[in-house]
Design a protein around this nucleic acid. Structure first.
Lengths: 227, 227
DNA sequence: AACCTCAAACTAACATACTAGTTGCGCATT
DNA sequence: AATGCGCAACTAGTATGTTAGTTTGAGGTT
């Protein structure tokens, strides 16, 4: 979030800053492109993408569907008391972080809790793929945080409800608590997109403030070609 | 599937076959590593991965959860008659392909149908991420097909049920039909793993037939380091 | 003043050369 | 014969040079 959307991210410049060559930088940029944080325009440049509302919505959808499945499995599994302890521990620390107004730590623990849902479900690998789809969701979350849009108490309460349902083995309740927690994120975005703190990062198609993402008027397929 | 698990996939060799340099080959291999089809072992080699049962299960989970959400949305959306037509068209062609015993085309249309669910749900981008998680699921499907494990009639019937529910706008029925279709894939794998046609491709930890995936006994973090 | 033209100065894409771990095999030691 | 050592031949990783589209802007034309 420190580089504005539309801004050029130069291979050469980064390489010189890191005292390395362009090659590893280039490979890192390919990975960033894969998760949608930058757009590589052939022979032109690599640019930071704006947050796309479509991508945000899709990220929310993926998150909701996968976490629904995760908490349901976590609730129906037996013999995972160590995971239950882990969940409790995170909950506790998160409450402390909130009271201490340490919002960065609060966010970190939030991530950890949701990851722990997948661990409890025995689906650790799913979390990693899940995260790759969350670039824009996470960018919005970051913007909300630094713009003072924080609802820690509701979050804590919702987390409590989810964890309680998991520990109680109540599959249906775990889903309901999760949906209550993150089911409305998706619809929030329209309102949020109006917030002046977020506006500059979100793709808007009106003519004002035209992004200088080059327009690709020539002959390249999605990716590379023979010599 | 033409290269056996454990086999070396050499950058240099591929580059010479393609009359190109190692660089673009290397970038392609990085992408294959991202979806889990190869494992890059630093300074040793890039090897085709065996199908991992964990990865298969996680892929099935992701597929089920995302498609549940997709068909539910597709069923609850209005004004997507063109999508309905598209679904019908694919169904029809798939029946033809089955009768013609054109199993490759049958599989292609299967993919297209499931992609069309996401299109009908207005979540096109989700499909692409979804596919990145399906490497091992797709490898198993391919192996099933070439080993004569084909259940076209059941598949066609299930597809019909799903599409009917979507067109009728019956959210609950669409989910149930989808779960009936792909909900049991996950549990199949244990039995399938015994099949001699699949055995050679699936990771098995017993000592016989030790994969020669090098054992990584030295000092590399997950990926790269400074000079 | 608005509009082309064209060339210089960018960029990513690609090719090639080099570095530095890894691995297996032959040979010496036991 | 079995075992340990060390060197040679791999490999991916990195650095750097080259190629070929893209973009910008200066200068000329209308």
């Amino acid at each position: 979030m420190e580089i504005q959307p539309g801004q050029l991210v130069s291979e050469k410049e980064i390489a010189s800053v890191l005292n390395s060559s362009k090659t590893p930088v280039r490979e890192a940029l390919i990975r960033l492109e894969d998760v949608g944080l930058v757009a590589v325009v052939p022979k032109s440049g690599t640019y930071v993408t704006p947050i796309r509302i479509d991508s945000y919505i899709e990220g929310c959808f993926i998150r909701l569907q996968l976490e629904i499945g995760a908490v349901r499995r976590a609730a129906s599994r037996r013999g995972i008391e160590s995971c239950h302890q882990q969940l409790d521990s995170i909950l506790e620390q998160q409450a402390i972080a909130w009271n201490a107004e340490d919002y960065v730590r609060f966010a970190t623990l939030d991530e950890q809790l949701h990851e722990a849902f997948f661990t409890a479900a025995g689906l650790d690998g799913v979390w990693h793929f899940h995260q790759k789809t969350q670039a824009d969701v996470n960018r919005v979350r970051h913007l909300k945080r630094i713009n003072g849009i924080r609802r820690g108490l509701q979050v804590l309460e919702a987390h409590n409800a989810i964890v309680s349902a998991i520990k109680a083995g109540d599959v249906q309740a775990s889903e309901e608590a999760l949906v209550a927690h993150i089911g409305s994120l998706e619809s929030e975005i329209e309102r949020l997109a109006q917030n002046p703190g977020l506006l500059a990062f979100i793709e808007n198609q009106d003519s004002s403030m035209t992004r200088k993402l080059p327009s690709r008027r020539s002959s390249w397929s999605t990716r590379t070609q023979q010599t």
